[in-house]
Structure formats: C-alpha cells, structure tokens
Design a protein around this nucleic acid. Sequence first.
DNA 1: CCTCATCGTCGAACCGGTTCGAAAGCCGTG
DNA 2: CACGGCTTTCGAACCGGTTCGACGATGAGG
Lengths: 338, 338
Amino acid sequence: MSTIGDVAKQAGVSRSTVSYALSGKRAISDETRTRIEAAINELGFTPNAGARALKTAQTMVLGLLLQFHPDEFAPAMLQYVLPVSEAAREEGYDILMVTDPDGPRGIRRIADSDMVDGIVLLDVTAQDPRLDALRATRKPAALIGLPRDTAGLDVIDLDFGEAARILVDHLQELGHREIVLICPPHHVVERGGSYVWRFRDSAIERAARYGLQIHPYYGESRQPAIRHSVDAILDAHPKATALVVHNDATIAALPAILRERGVDVPTDLSVVSLYSRDFGEEFSLPFTAVESAADVLGRSAVTQLVRRITRSPDAGAPVVRFVPPVLTDRGSTQHPRR
Amino acid sequence: MSTIGDVAKQAGVSRSTVSYALSGKRAISDETRTRIEAAINELGFTPNAGARALKTAQTMVLGLLLQFHPDEFAPAMLQYVLPVSEAAREEGYDILMVTDPDGPRGIRRIADSDMVDGIVLLDVTAQDPRLDALRATRKPAALIGLPRDTAGLDVIDLDFGEAARILVDHLQELGHREIVLICPPHHVVERGGSYVWRFRDSAIERAARYGLQIHPYYGESRQPAIRHSVDAILDAHPKATALVVHNDATIAALPAILRERGVDVPTDLSVVSLYSRDFGEEFSLPFTAVESAADVLGRSAVTQLVRRITRSPDAGAPVVRFVPPVLTDRGSTQHPRR
DNA sequence: CCTCATCGTCGAACCGGTTCGAAAGCCGTG
DNA sequence: CACGGCTTTCGAACCGGTTCGACGATGAGG
C-alpha cells in the first residue's frame, strides 16, 4: 500500500498539503489539487485507518455487543443487527461485532484499547452485568432494552406497557370478556428481560380496569414444548375468546397448532400478538399485532449514539426513549360469538 | 486513558522497558517487572489498538462480509456469523462486520485502509462481483461458497454434490422408485448460488444411474407461495413416494402443509432434506437430513484465514475444501407402501 | 587483572497520518 | 517603494505504541 508520503512525492508537494487537499481544511489551489488527485488515483492511495485514528482519536467504528442465550429464539437478534449496521454506515461508521459470552470483558477489550468510538448494547436486562463495565469506560453508549438503573445512559426501547394496553383495549372494544395471555418463557424473566413484566403487568392491570378475566402464562421457546403448553393452556380455558401472545417462538408455531385443534381464527378465537414486520412476513403470520419495530430501535440507538459522540463529550442529559408501538390490523380478531 | 508513557513514568522506567515487559520479547528483571505491573494495574492501562496496529501492521481484526438479499431466508445467515465470530475470538481476532449492499465497495473500504488483517466472505456466488475487489487488495481471504474461478483463493463449502448422492442413495436403498426434488428458489440460481445446481445436478444424475424417476422443481421462499407451490407439486405427482427438499423456507413450512393435506410421514411419504442442526432444533423439524454444518464451515474458514495471515504471506497453495456431509436419521423415511 | 559475553535498560527512530505556526509569493494601497 | 494582508505551501511536532542499536553493570574465564 502507498502512503501519503508516496502521494506527496508523486505530486511534488509536501505531506501536509496532500492531507489538506484530502480534508479540505485549508485552501489548496486548483492546480495542485488536480495534481494530487491524479497521484492518488495513480497510486490507489487510501489513508491508513490506524494512523488516522491515532492522531484524531476517532476510529469511526462502533462496537455492537450481542449475546446469544442458548435456548432462545435466535432470529430475533438479527432483526436488530442489520438496521444498526446500516444506520452506522450512513453516519460513516463501521461495526465491530462482539459476541463474547463474557460481555463485560468484551466491552473492556474494545473500549479500553480505543478500538471504537462508542458502543451499542443489545438485549439489555434489568441488572445487566455489562453496565458496570460500560460505565467504567468513558465511552458513549446506547442501550436497546431497559435496565433498572438508567443513570447516565442513553436508553431506547419499545413501550411494552403501551403495547399491552393497545392490545387489551382492542379486544375489550370488540367485547371480549375472558382472554389468555402467553408471555415469553419464564427463564427470560429470570435473566432480567424487563420487557416481559412491563408487558405482562400492563396487560393485567388494563384487563382488571375493564373487569376482564385474564389468564397469564409464561410460554416455551422450543418445540415440542410449545405445542404441549399451548394445548394445555387452551384446554384449561374453554370459555376464553381471545389470545394475546407475546412470544416469538409460540406465535410462529401457533398457526399449525390451531389448525390441528380445529380452531378457526378469528371465528372461534381472536388472536393478537407482538412481533416485527419482517418476522411476520418471514413466517407469513396472519395475526393482528403490535409491531416490535426492531429497525426503528436499532436505527434510533445509532443516531443517538452518534449524536452523543459528536456533540461534545457529555453535552445534554441522558435520553431514555420509549418508542410508541403501532397496531397493524390483519383481521385476526372479531366480536366473540358468545 | 493512560498511555505507555504514563506507566513508564509511574514505574520509573523508560517506555521501551514497559513495552518489553508487556510483550516478553526481551528479558526484564523480576523487580522492575513487578513495578511495571503495579503501575499498569494502578493506572488501568490498556495499549492503544490504533498505535499498535500502526507500528506492527497488524490490526487483529477480521472483516466479515455479508449481504442480505431481499426475499431470502434471513435466519440462515446468522448460522454462519456466530461460529465465525467465536472462532475468530479464539484466535485472538475481532470481527468487523460489513453489510454494505455494495460489496466491492465495502471490501475496498476496510481493506485499503488497513482496518483488517483478512476477510471472510459469506454466501459467495459463481460470479461474485466481490472477488475482483478482493483480488485487487492484497489481503488474505477465505470464502464460504464456491465461485466459478477459485484461482488464488481459499474456499470452503459443503460438498453439496455428495449431499445429494447420500440422500438419493438412502431413498434408493429403501426401494423408492419415484421421487420429487424441491430446490431453492430459482432466483438463487440466477444470482449464481452454485450450491443449487451442484445439489440438483448430482441428485438427477444419481437418480438416473439407478433408473429412478425424479421430478426436480425450484421452490419458493415466502408464504403463501410456498404452500401453493408444494401443493401443486405434490398434486402433480401422486405416485411419488419420496420428497427431497433442499430449501430452508419450504422445509420449515412443510410439517404444517403435510398435516393439512393429511399426508403422514413416513407412512404416506418419505421426506429427506438438507439443513443445519440448529435450524432443525429451532423449528423442531422431524426429518432425516444431511447437516449443512454452518458452524463447521464458519470455523474452518476462520482457521484457514488465520493460517494464511500468520504463515508468511503466500506460503502454500490456495485451498479448496469441500466438507463431507453427514446424514442424521430422524426416522422420516421407510419402504414405500406400493 | 583484563577481556568478553550476558543481562537489563535506555534513547531514538519509526509507523502514517493530522495540524499548527510560519514563510514565500503576490496583490493593492498610501 | 515600503508595507500590510491574503493565499498557498511547507516543515516540524505529535498521536502511542514497537523495535533496533547501544551502553553500563555484572560475572565468568584465561
């Protein structure tokens, strides 16, 4: 690879002149600029990222931390990765993806060695052990997922409470009086996934307010447990006229399960859920649902992070943003027959 | 952040001594080593990656290039990403993930600016436009997927031809005489996904050799087209006793489709397929299948790449490796009733 | 006792950019 | 004609590491 010195020699100017021609931070005469550009093309010069980062103290790279939990629905993660990567690129950043099972160590490694200008944390839990490491480094960060203590952190997440209220309201308006709620698996709660209880509590609270009967359950994440659990739950509540599913694995398996049981949607049962548009298309899910909008969250986290990086170091108070959910009606609900 | 100079001052030695204590490339007395270690701990020093990369001309980062094709089964990609990332970390490398829709540009950007020491290309097609860019940079690379021209490149892929032969052999041994073959969608062929015709041609060739009737089709990637296409195909061949499916989206939807048609596996129809173990577990697919072994391919690509990076520049001829497929019998086949 | 090898450490150069201060050349003006 | 100001370019310092050659101290061998 050629260096800026090679270009300078070729164009008959000094290294600094080439640098200024490239950055535009000082005026360069048209004549020398064209000579420099010619030299750059001829030599195929591209500035060395390491050297530039060393001097400017900016790497133009963002860290993306993800953790894969065994026994969890993996495709969901990808929903976030792609929008984050695309948004970063649009802002001029590349993505250093860290999947170290030891999250805090991964953060320290890329932050303390200044490999990245900022960090996006995916799937943040209530007491996420990564947050201590994150606060110890002085790097800007944006979280997707709500921790218990948000002090000093930029956080973005779907408003799961509002999502639950929207769905319960929708069923209540249609006249349903007894509904079943299937949440994510219980081990997600244990891990501290706050979206589980934020959705769950709001749904229960909202149902109580309307005087609706609601039967909350934690679902499963793998077949054949999903099928068995759904069967048992539906058997236990023959009078329920509506089903709220907040569980990707369950909703993906639901069409087959209901078909087998001979249950028609929405004639026999109204079904509402919460999943992303992509996910729904992937599995052609025919359910009225609130969109989880992973792309909105991913992009928003990146823009917030970039703002934090560029606008002075600590300018502005930390931002906790809850994205308002949107209902997409796919016709999987109607008035209860009874 | 503190620098190596701060550590040196704190420990009362020169910068070079600290560097040697860290790298172990020269002997350091126990006495000063402990003093240096104390200083490092006290100051929380971590070497700056950019500075180190600048001098050593090694970034300890691998580029991972992926492209998302609309209308394609996205989860498949993740199967490779995680093993690649884990294998890289075990070798001491981090992963710079590039999802630029313009592949060649992404390669040039990270390679010419020396952000990475080597590149892993995912989902390589027969005439992949990224290969020219790759050859232009002098960076080592490893491809997953078989291009038409492998000159000078390290390539690894599943032996799809052998996979097809294994499956056809399996059915032939059981006594099947008429089988249906569902391949990936036709637009994958147009894009140059060589694994389509490598599997397809081998299956047809093998069937012909045994005198079996085989009906090859290109499948769909999205519902409800999948369902319609499978229905039409099965209707067209009522005498076929076995089904070979080389199509993730189709195989995922197949249990529901067959149940609806009232077709029992394996009593009415023997089914074999090709998918990864994870994928099968995710969707609890009950089919005898050849494993696509994305983890093996991903890890193998990384180890080959690292070998190429560390062992001198161009030591050793390029390697094209076909991973032998393995059949997992899940009991979805039996002797045809007729 | 002198020489020589070895050990442990230091200073300086270097990697490839960026950026600051200054200098050279040119113009218009008093 | 001297002077000030503007434009364009250069040289040098710097970012934070690594590495080479050298140097003083120590100990062994003749």
